[in-house]
Amino acid sequence: MSQELKEAYGFIFEEELIAEIEKIGILKSVKEGDIIIDINDYIKAMPLLLQGAIKILREDKEGNELLLYFLERGDTCALTLSCCLGETKSEVRAVVERDTSFIMVPIAKIEDWTVKYKSWRNFVFESYHSRLTEMLETIDTLAFMNMDERLLRYLQDKAKINQAEKLQVTHQQVAYDLNTSRVVISRLLKKLELEGKILLQRNHILVYDL
């Protein structure tokens, strides 16, 4: 864990803080598709990502999901942090986008480190800012973009997160993330293919326009 922790957070945190995280943090490894935090869960610790990627989803009263943002190495989820500090239930679902490892940090240390370490305090504030910016961008796409523009942006973001132009994903999975129907997604994917921005293959989508 020591090397992975230093590679992901060594340029952010002081050596003393890295040592504390290594001492008390719990290392976890999860597989693609696993749910690590669900809606209405009480959260007792916050994750620090070492590798992989996680997608954060919101759910409406009918059970429809909407993708809010992705988390990568060196990130944490500000919404999770808020639940930790406020001891409230989670309002989001965290699903593993690709095989991921992370360190879980107990709630008790979150407040202690905010006082003790400037780097931790800056990290927490920056996490809030980054996640807020990403949620505002999600709102903008819903309010101002056509569905084909939203779809292309989603594919571009997913390709970057997975570090691969070729995405192994079904039309139905894309429809779930964008909270629309598979029929709509299939039609728009064909449109994007005709425009030369993607190539459709069986259970794969090759994204050209990055």
Rank of each mutant, 00 (worst) to 15 (best):
Y69T: 06
I36S: 01
E72G: 13
L155M: 11
Y69V: 01
D157N: 15
H129F: 15
L206Y: 14
Q172E: 13
K89V: 01
E7W: 06
I18T: 07
P47C: 08
V105E: 07
Q3P: 08
I39R: 13
L152C: 03
K31E: 15
I161P: 04
C84T: 02
D75K: 01
I18W: 05
A143V: 15
I43F: 09
K31V: 12
V96P: 02
E97T: 11
C84V: 07
L5S: 05
A53W: 00
L206C: 06
L188I: 04
K158I: 03
V207Y: 02
L81D: 09
I12R: 07
G25T: 00
G63L: 00
A53M: 04
E59G: 01
E72H: 10
D99N: 14
M135T: 12
D75Y: 01
Y69Q: 03
R93A: 02
Q51S: 11
F123D: 00
Q201M: 15
L71F: 00
K23P: 05
Q156N: 10
A19D: 13
N203S: 10
G33C: 09
K89I: 06
S82P: 01
K158W: 11
I185Q: 01
I198W: 03
V169Y: 06
M145G: 07
T80P: 01
I21F: 03
R202S: 11
Y117Q: 08
E195Q: 10
Y154P: 01
C77Q: 02
D177G: 05
L5M: 02
P106M: 09
V115F: 12
V184M: 14
L81I: 11
C77L: 05
P47F: 13
F11L: 15
A143D: 11
Y117E: 06
D38A: 05
L152F: 05
L151E: 08
L210C: 02
E62Q: 13
I18F: 12
T80N: 06
E193G: 02
F70M: 03
G25D: 01
T138V: 08
W120M: 08
E193H: 02
K6N: 14
E16A: 11
E149A: 15
R73D: 05
F11G: 13
D177W: 04
E165P: 04
I56P: 06
A108E: 11
G63V: 00
V30F: 14
